[in-house]
């Protein structure tokens, strides 16, 4: 089961593959890409930017951090595994809250042309606001920094889901609507069997973008909130001018972001009609 999950996550097309070359290509090309990136990084760190740690020293630090990811030396010094765990917890909570607001609201707005026109400007105004700006608002509402960072994640990540859901619901083909009318669907049945199903692929696209944003926002909001999490970890490492740790954390964030995206891509494939 586990190997199957991993295979499905990373090589979604693998079951169709007969040709070994294609598999090899799928492995070698990404590897080459990474190699080119590291080479560029090395060149920049050794020529233009002397202050930037080299890939070797950064990977060394990353290795040290990963070696013992779950040590716990009091609330101010925990392993990188704990930091990522706290961050993921906040991200999922914020993302779920955001989605629980975005999806029903999106369906509601999408069903009526008037509502879409009514809410469009406010959505467009709030959508591009940076997480750094939302944090103090969250703090004023909840009077607690953990809740404020979850609020920040929820409110910055809900827009793609909302917009995609509205679009999905509002672009239900006329034929479907007619069929529903002919068969005398109740309002609930229409929502459940027509609107929701038609909008699902769009929603999933929105959710995939949203989880990406939620994960991106966590660093900014934890830098402001303090305490635990990968964002505070970066702040604290910067405070001690330890760029190796900052880069290691960036790599860890990137890898987890990639895994999250893959999971949502799978969901998308599974439910896309």
């Amino acid at each position: 089961m586990a190997t199957k999950t991993i295979r499905l996550l990373f090589y979604p097309k693998a079951k169709n593959i007969k040709n070994v070359w294609v598999v090899a290509e799928g492995l070698i090309l990404p590897f080459l890409g990474v190699l080119v990136f590291i080479l560029m990084w090395y060149l920049i760190s050794s020529t233009l930017a002397g202050q930037l740690p080299s890939p070797m020293s950064a990977f060394n630090t990353l290795y040290e951090l990963i070696e013992n990811p779950f040590y716990d030396n009091g609330p101010n010094d925990k392993g990188i595994g704990w930091q990522l765990f706290y961050s993921l917890k906040r991200v999922f909570l914020g993302f779920f809250i955001g989605s629980f607001i975005a999806i029903p609201l999106g369906i509601f707005i999408g069903l009526s042309k008037k509502l879409s026109i009514m809410f469009n400007p406010i959505v467009q105004i709030l959508r591009p606001v940076s997480p750094l700006a939302w944090f103090p608002i969250g703090l004023a509402i909840f009077q607690a920094s953990n809740e404020a960072s979850i609020f920040t994640i929820a409110i910055t990540s809900l827009w793609p889901t909302l917009i995609n859901t509205v679009y999905g619901v509002s672009s239900i083909p006329e034929d479907y609507k007619s069929v529903a009318k002919v068969f005398g669907f109740s309002k609930y049945a229409y929502m459940r069997y027509v609107a929701l199903l038609c909008a699902l692929p769009f929603m999933l696209t929105g959710l995939r973008i949203s989880i990406g944003i939620a994960w991106m926002v966590i660093v900014a909001s934890e830098m402001l909130a303090g305490g635990t999490g990968i964002g505070f970890y970066i702040w604290d490492s910067w405070n001690s001018l330890n760029l190796n740790k900052v880069i290691s954390a960036i790599l860890a964030i990137g890898i987890i972001g990639y895994i999250l995206d893959r999971i949502f891509e799978r969901l998308q494939r599974r439910f896309a009609v």
Binding site: N76, M223, G227
Partner: peptide, 11 residues
């Protein structure tokens, strides 16, 4: 008592 490292004075 637990002591907590904070990020900034506004914090």
């Amino acid at each position: 008592v637990e002591v907590y490292k904070e990020t900034s004075w506004p914090n």
